[in-house]
Each structure stands twice: as C-alpha cells, then as structure tokens.
Amino acid sequence: MAQSDEKTVVTSVKPRAESAGSRQGALELAAGPGAPTTYPLGGNRPLLLGRDPAADVSVASNELSRRHCRLERVGQDWLVTDLGSVNGLHLNGVRIHSALLHEGDRLQMGEVLFVFRER
C-alpha cells in the first residue's frame, strides 16, 4: 500500500511481525527512478534491494543489479551487504562490502541514492 502527497511517496515492504522493542528504519530514495520514495524497514527477516520487481525494495534502474544488496537486522541495527553487484555499494562515498547503517547515511548504487533514517 502506498501513500502520497505532492512531493513524497511512502511505500511499504510487505508487513510482517515486529519484535518487541526493535528499532525500525527507513530508506529514503533520494535519487533515481521513483524518487522521492520512502521505504519503511521492519521485521526480522533479511530484505532484498535491487532491480528485481520481486525485491523487497525494488527500484527500476538499470544501474542497480537485480539482487544488489541485502539488509538484515543485527541486534537493533541494520546491516547492508553488497551481493556482488556490478556498480557496487558506496556508503557516504566510500565503496564498501557491508556496514551497519546510522542516521543520515547515504547509500549510492550507480544513479540510485538512498538516505537511511533511524526511526
């Protein structure tokens, strides 16, 4: 289900049970096809981000690999891991294989830019 106003689209990955006390997060799509869009992150199973329409966070950009990266819980935090993408995963301008995300972190994948928000 999606909600929208003039500037921002808020979409949701499939709802799932939350663990008590777990901190939520969100990815704001700041650049790339479909921006601006906010993807709330939740649940405890790993989430797939990529060009694949079946991905939990799917962006229709040719600069994304079909299975570009994975987002998973580590304790209260979110860990992002490159799944061997062609264009790589850049955290605040630094190419990484994986990292824990913090408020305001910028994740660049080709033309696609997400900003991570803690909630």
Binding site: V94, H97, S98, L100
Partner: peptide, 13 residues
C-alpha cells in the same frame, strides 16, 4: 589515496 574514517562493522572487499 582515497581517504576515509574506519568505522565499526564497516567491511571492505
């Protein structure tokens, strides 16, 4: 060189 700060949990290939 590219310069950046090491941060916990950051992994490089």
């Amino acid at each position: 060189p590219e310069v950046f700060a090491a941060r916990e949990w950051m992994e490089l290939k």
